[in-house]
Amino acid sequence: MKHLIVIAFLATAGVLGAQSAISLAYFGETITHPGLKVGISFPLHQWEQRKMLRKGQEKVLDKRLDLSPQLGFYYHQDYQTGLFVLPELSYIRQNAKGNYTALGIGAGYMHTRVPRVYDFDTSGEIEQIGAGYHYFISNYFATFGKDLSVNKGIPLSIYAKPQLMHALPNAGKGIWYFALELGFSVKMSE
């Protein structure tokens, strides 16, 4: 399974060719349960929108659609550790000051491990067993960030990304998670 995840991640990245930005983020499941998330994002489509303001000034917005294969994990003590690969699609809207917001969705795979699970073996002795679940996951997020290359010339963006993640199949209608990502991305090419 571990090979499958790595291959899927690298294949997604490879197919898309030249890198645009690499991101690294703290991934907090319910904010406080720590994890990491890394990703590569590629602009699929970019365009510019110009708006005339009442004062006669022109407002320029850069818009783009990004595809970002992401790999991450989180550790929630006594509950589960989750490892996921999650390609995401984002619609980004950036103003002239470099401030941007984005809305997006993702869909991928997650494997969880449940800590310290015990059962009786056939002879009635206690044994510790490995336990975990395979999930199809989707996530729904908003991103609030700043592109520091616009005013400061640093090829870096910082962002906060609250999100809801849904995992299936699970008893009932799946499991929802709330997570907060705090990270930065480095531009690799223009």
Binding site: I5, H111, V117, Y118, D121, I129
Partner: peptide
């Protein structure tokens, strides 16, 4: 890669060791 290996390995069965800490958490299957 290390995290992947840790998370996805098929852990071998282990015997139970009593945790005498004043607080312990586990799952019973």
């Amino acid at each position: 890669a290390s995290i992947l290996a840790f998370l996805l390995c098929n852990c071998s069965k282990e015997t139970f060791e009593v945790d005498t800490a004043s607080k312990t958490f586990f799952h019973v299957k």
